[in-house]
Nucleic acid binder design. Structure first.
Lengths: 219, 219
DNA sequence: AAAAATTTAAAACGAACGTTTGATTGATTT
DNA sequence: AAATCAATCAAACGTTCGTTTTAAATTTTT
């Protein structure tokens, strides 16, 4: 009991401080101080700071990615006969990440910022973790997206998947900027609004005219 | 002479190490060691690590943002009578950032990663610097983009500007991922390809159907 | 050539870092 | 009741951090 409480207290405090100060900026002493546990408890329960970082991420990422795969599975089952819709696939990809990370006033401290920041972390260890952890989700979703964009050349398709990840991670990273940029018009706290807008933008980008086909050629 | 050499040597080494290890991950000792200068030289020439970080950024960001404004000015002058083209505005925004940061084999160590990472840095000091440094570019370009997207509601417009920044910063951050994702089909070292693809995606996203107007309603 | 200002050098500052130790507690098992 | 084990604690480990000091060397100015 006390075991679980201590581990959870450490994870909660580490999550909060990693969000605010980054993985390197937050010290283990600040974590144990916030969690009201002894400094040695981190190495007893997790082994190292690096392992703690991954434990913090794993606690949130695991259910998010599982939900994504569940939604995609359900989608593919329900659409076995007719075609999948691009927007539905994107929703299955974005919705869990937004809904389960505090968008719309979720309970977790802004773990979205942590996840969004992952893609730009310089740490090699984290990059390897990230790649391994997202491999299945990437493979499944890129296959699904490929199937609904049959006319897109390969090169364009992969570039756009890359840009899509950029829009998504940036959205996770900074939940305040849209409100500031827009003078309060955008409401990033509203999960539905954020999700709908992100889907519309990415769908438009994925469906855009291919590079090499100039606008003048078709007009 | 020796002054310039020492300062430049420090900036070059700091840039390289900040790219590889992050602002916090790279120590001043590793910088002076790579630059072959004394550790005290950093505080003599720059004052503090924080000031060094900003000097490293400023050296690259300043000409990039100046070039962006120059291109936009030239664009607006040459198109005084007829309408601006969305793609041309995007090119004026993306091209300097890609061309002047080592895309396509530029000389600078991967400063693009530094710039792209800026948006997700947790440091308050850096966030303030970033905001002040990009204010003019943001204002000018968002006004230009607004003018060529007159039918887009405000809320959609600002959301899409946000997503656009995500696609751009992610592209700067990681020049290897497109190649890896695509199995070698995409060539991020090719500046032209990267720029054209990014423009096509973002233009498609900006031109996408507005949220609230369902596809069924128009089909 | 002398004097003044600028730049480099070696060394150390205190503080903070991740990590480890060894003793102690409290519950579980024998 | 004794032994075992996981969990917690205070304290310290050695290292590295950004920064400062003081003096020597160099360049610039007079």
């Amino acid at each position: 009991m006390s075991d679980i409480d201590t581990k959870t207290a450490i994870l909660d405090a580490a999550e909060t401080l990693f969000v605010e100060q980054g993985f390197e900026g937050a010290s283990l002493r600040s974590v144990t101080s916030m969690a009201n546990v002894n400094i040695a408890a981190i190495h007893y329960h997790f082994g190292s700071k690096d392992a703690l970082v991954k434990a913090v991420l794993e606690r949130r990422l695991s259910p998010i990615n599982q939900k994504r795969l569940d939604l995609l599975n359900a989608l593919e089952l329900s659409c076995a006969d007719r075609n999948l819709q691009l927007e539905d696939i994107l929703r299955a990809l974005f919705e869990p990440a937004l809904k389960m990370t505090g968008f719309g006033g979720g309970s977790h401290s802004n773990i979205a910022r942590l996840i969004g920041r992952l893609f730009s972390e310089p740490s090699h260890s984290l990059q390897l973790y990230l790649k391994a952890r997202f491999q299945e989700v990437f493979d499944r979703f890129s296959a699904a997206l490929r199937s609904v964009l049959p006319d897109l050349p390969d090169v364009d398709f992969f570039w756009r998947i890359h840009f899509m990840m950029g829009a998504m991670s940036h959205t996770l990273c900074d939940q305040e900027r849209p409100r500031l940029l827009s003078g309060g018009i955008c409401n990033p706290q509203c999960f539905e609004e954020t999700c709908d807008q992100l889907i519309a933008f990415v769908a438009g980008g994925l469906r855009a005219q291919c590079v090499g086909i100039k606008r003048e050629d078709v007009e």
